[in-house]
Design a protein around this nucleic acid. Sequence first.
RNA 1: CGAGUAAGCUAUGUGACUGCCCCGUCACUUGUGGCGGGGAGGAAAGUCCGAGCUCCACAGGGCAAGGGUGCCGGAUAACGUCCGGUGAAGGCGACUUUAAGGAUAGUGCAACAGAGAUAUACCGCCGCAUUUUGCGGUAAGGGUGGAAAGGCGAGGUAAGAGCUCACCCACCUCUUCGGCGACGAAGAGCGUGCUGUAAACCCCACUCGGAGCAAGAUUGAAAUGAGAGCAUUUAAUGGCUGCCCGUCACGCUCUUGAAAAUCGCAUGAGCGUAUCGGUGACGAUGCGCCAAGAUAGAUGGUCACAGUUAUACAGAACUCGGCUUAUUGCUUGCUCGUAUA
RNA 2: GGCCCCUUGGUCAAGCGGUUAAGACACCGCCCUUUCACGGCGGUAACAGGAGUUCGAGUCUCCUAGGGGUCA
Length: 111
Amino acid sequence: MKRRYSLKRNKEFRRVYRVGKSQGSHLLVLINAKSKTDGVHVGFSVSKKIGNSVVRNRIKRRLREAFSPFLPLIKEKTNIIIIAREPVKTAKFTEIERSIERLLQKASLLK
RNA sequence: CGAGUAAGCUAUGUGACUGCCCCGUCACUUGUGGCGGGGAGGAAAGUCCGAGCUCCACAGGGCAAGGGUGCCGGAUAACGUCCGGUGAAGGCGACUUUAAGGAUAGUGCAACAGAGAUAUACCGCCGCAUUUUGCGGUAAGGGUGGAAAGGCGAGGUAAGAGCUCACCCACCUCUUCGGCGACGAAGAGCGUGCUGUAAACCCCACUCGGAGCAAGAUUGAAAUGAGAGCAUUUAAUGGCUGCCCGUCACGCUCUUGAAAAUCGCAUGAGCGUAUCGGUGACGAUGCGCCAAGAUAGAUGGUCACAGUUAUACAGAACUCGGCUUAUUGCUUGCUCGUAUA
RNA sequence: GGCCCCUUGGUCAAGCGGUUAAGACACCGCCCUUUCACGGCGGUAACAGGAGUUCGAGUCUCCUAGGGGUCA
């Protein structure tokens, strides 16, 4: 997943948290909001409570890898934040993939 | 075989498909594609020290304070680090540890217990008077305590005491020998017998300017914005450790908004290897190599094989040298114990 | 990433190196009251962890862990 698809500014994160709608599963939480800029931007949030930097980086890498196939299928002009919950540490990759797909369907973001 | 001790190595590998970041090159539609190359650690961690680098006023004057180090010699760019020694302590031993200057410069503290804590007399012993006991002498014995005026024997005495003497112990002064030195060995003195604590204040010697890459430089933009309060120019605020002087900058404080790009930034006290010097830390010379550089922050996913408890601690953010802490698997030397030859 | 600070019962907190570590609220038991509250008496309960200095450490020194602040 290239970097230009990632959500960067703290301001943008705050806006999504404020106006966005959230869906949850036991592995992940998804928050989405409409944006003014073109394209899709995704931010991944992993709390310090979940583990040390090695664990957090590993979770972020797996989430990016699992999310990237869905990137061309998502409607334009949306910002998405995906928050990791504690059980992601031990989840299998296919479980993460399935969880992301179900959350995207629930939020009706797929084309 | 068990227990221990010291030193050292290591931190999954190979292949397939598919992704991410950087560099080079080619192409064009100038931000995409093709090809090639590179891409986390021994601690990257904690931030406990030392440096490089950058800015501040190149380190101002007076008064006063503060931090650090602390046996000797060496290594190093430097260090509170390392190496080799000396002394002391621990261990049967291999070996390990060591904030190790000064308590005879001065001050403070030493609870409780105990008669008494840096000086004393409770029990006791002795003498005298009296025969409930009182006065005087004494510190050998008892008991308290972490610590009670060096130990033992003899003389001496009313009882005793370094009061005197011999021997021993410790310290001080001096001499000789060995060592670069810390120090060690021996001897002499008609010298002394001194509580502990300086990670209590302190004294002595040496040493330390401050801030830190969010340092800072350049370019661009103009948002040098808006609101509230305070002050009204020898002031106030900030910088130079504190105060005064001096000097520089500049209205000050709070709330809120905005906050771009490039450089710094990857060739360095660098890494590997061989020889030589040195007990060693380390140094010299030759040859070879270039090895992450992001800016919300790059190494992933799915399998196969080998191997396995195949997994621990753990993710670069300016860069090095150490220290400390966390942690996987293994090798070798030595010591002690047991058994066998 | 850099630089600082703090950890004492369940909570808020005092504590000069020295007997058994104050105090308040909370909790438990008893008394008081017809009962509850207030009040009285009593009790349970702590020095973040590990080393060192010292006769003796909550206090002094070092290391570790956890928490907090600040800098564009």
